[in-house]
Simulated assay, not measured.
Amino acid sequence: MSTGPHRIVFANEKGGTGKSTTAVHVAVALAYQGARVATIDLDARQRTMHRYFENRAETMRRREIALPTASFDVYGQDSIEALDELTERLGQGYDFIVFDTPGRDDPLARHVATRADTLVTPLNDSFVDFDLIGQVDAETFKVRRLSFYAELIWEARKKRAMATIKDARREMDWVVVRNRTGYTEARNQRRIDQALTELSKRVGFRIASGLSERVIYRELFPSGLTLLDKGHLGELGTSHLVARQELRTLVSGLNLPMPAKGAAASAPSLESAA
């Protein structure tokens, strides 16, 4: 029985963690590997992911070029049922659906997070961000308790694991992505390492390396281009080549199920792009 497209949800109730930038680059990386990718932006006010792909489409028209990309939609209603209907319609022709969610507590974000096949939670390397998933002791930095958000995802994963075979949904893979690690003081980074490792054993998420803080990500937004668009970015420095490698490492770490090789045969590979 088909389980439909793989749902990747980028969710974090705190803003400023690089969530939309990471979502866009992962979606484009999947398209470079031949996957058919749809995106749904649930932040109807900011629409960062949606605007990024609008800019990308405009750049392709203006330069008369074709680049691997994703379909893009923005959902601005309150109805969970209507969102599920939209997701089902998109699922007819795509390998992946990528959701970008608001950086706040939001019922639609909670809903898609609990139904994710791969849930990606980007965090900056700070205890301010860590507090989203767990609270630590002020003296020892040992994890004291799960946060509400971690408990929500833990319960959703248990329900998914106990679902009957007729439900036909995959088990949820929760990946905490550590963005901007290069800007963290070494002692603090070790403490976060230990806290994340301890919490991951409790609730079963995986830890992946993410994207560093780089000006290039903000500069690329107006054109909708990404670091993978080799040949369309002008001359790039060494730091940009390092950033491409970071992206390749992130996509590999997500361990996403790619479509059959035949479906991807006509598309450039991530290796050649990065």
Rank of each mutant, 00 (worst) to 15 (best):
T249I: 14
E271Q: 15
R190H: 04
R169P: 02
V203G: 08
D193C: 06
A195E: 13
R62F: 08
L236V: 13
G76S: 07
Y183W: 08
R206M: 12
M49V: 08
R51N: 12
D73A: 13
Q189C: 02
R244N: 05
P259N: 10
D229T: 07
K230V: 10
R56N: 14
S269T: 06
V136G: 01
L146K: 06
S71E: 10
F96R: 00
A168Q: 04
A195I: 04
A265W: 11
L227T: 06
L220P: 02
S272D: 13
P107V: 15
R45T: 11
A156I: 02
R62N: 09
L86M: 08
R104Q: 12
K19F: 03
E54R: 10
Q245R: 10
A260P: 14
A31N: 03
V177W: 00
L247I: 12
K230G: 02
L108E: 00
L236M: 11
E213Q: 05
R45N: 13
L108W: 14
R56L: 05
A186Q: 15
R115T: 08
S71T: 13
V128N: 03
R178L: 05
T121F: 01
A265Y: 15
I80V: 07
L225H: 02
E58W: 01
F10L: 08
A150V: 01
A208M: 08
L225W: 05
G224A: 03
Q46I: 06
V37H: 00
D173Q: 14
E155W: 00
V215D: 08
K158D: 05
K230H: 11
Y52K: 14
R7K: 15
V37F: 01
G237Q: 12
A70I: 11
L233P: 01
P268Y: 13
A44N: 04
Q135S: 10
A243Q: 13
R51D: 11
A116T: 09
F221R: 09
R144T: 03
F96Q: 01
I97T: 03
T114Q: 09
R104E: 13
G253H: 13
A11W: 14
T101P: 00
T238F: 07
R190T: 05
G134E: 08
A113L: 05
D78H: 12
V242I: 10
L241C: 02
G237K: 10
P122H: 03
R7H: 13
P259H: 11
E198F: 07
L86N: 01
I192T: 00
P122R: 04
D117G: 15
K14Q: 00
D131A: 07
V177K: 07
D78K: 07
S272H: 14
S272Q: 08
I80C: 01
Y149S: 06
E151Y: 10
T48P: 06
T101F: 10
I65K: 04
R191K: 04
R218H: 13
R89E: 10
Y32K: 05
F99D: 01
A57V: 05
R190A: 03
R191F: 15
E246W: 09
L225T: 10
M172K: 06
E88T: 07
W154Q: 07
A150N: 02
L67A: 15
T118F: 05
F205A: 12
A156G: 11
V242D: 12
T238K: 09
Y75A: 03
P122C: 11
G93D: 10
T48F: 03
R104L: 09
S266G: 03
L250E: 12
I97H: 01
H240M: 13
L227N: 02
T59C: 10
H50S: 15
